[in-house]
């Protein structure tokens, strides 16, 4: 966690403003956890270098918006603007998820998904500390 000094803030802003060519709002509704796959589309000319980086990362494996922003060292909103461009060009696509994937954004995951998460964690860490449950 860090907040930068005033000078650093302004230079971050200038860098980002240039990167997104002045655009301040992503065209697609993207969450931090939205996952992206490389698609069949090609990048247009004169795209930011960061677009190539995003595509290279997504060719290796699926990546979320938050992970791309972390790896590029760019603010999330700026990365969403670039990802929107790449979705329009179909250079990125949103992968199909399993039908259970409706996690109900506002209400939280279903009890079935929570049970699956619990089982998955126990399999991955059979020696996890078993804390007595409150309540």
């Amino acid at each position: 966690m860090s907040t930068h000094g005033r000078a650093a803030e302004e230079s971050t802003f200038v860098r980002t403003y240039t990167l997104t060519r002045g655009r301040t709002r992503p065209r697609h509704l993207l969450g931090l956890a939205t996952v992206l796959d490389a698609g069949p589309g090609r990048l247009g000319p004169a795209q930011a270098e960061e677009c190539e980086e995003i595509l290279a990362l997504c060719r290796e494996r699926r990546r979320s918006v938050v992970e791309l922003a972390g790896r590029l060292g760019r603010p999330v909103t700026a990365v969403k603007v670039l990802v929107s461009d790449l979705l329009d060009a179909e250079a990125l696509v949103v992968p199909l998820t399993h039908p259970y994937a409706d996690t109900g954004a506002e209400s939280g995951p279903s009890t079935q998904l929570l049970a699956a998460l619990s089982a998955g964690l126990k399999r991955k860490w059979p020696d996890a500390i078993a804390y007595p449950q409150a309540g």
Binding site: M1, H4, E67, Y100, L113, G120, L121, R123
Partner: peptide, 22 residues
């Protein structure tokens, strides 16, 4: 201002439903 937060992930392929935890 900007704020930084941590991100990590792990996959749980052996869960009854394939899961990724962020």
């Amino acid at each position: 201002t900007t704020v930084a937060f941590d991100f990590g992930r792990l996959s749980l392929p052996d869960a009854p439903v394939p899961l990724e935890l962020f």
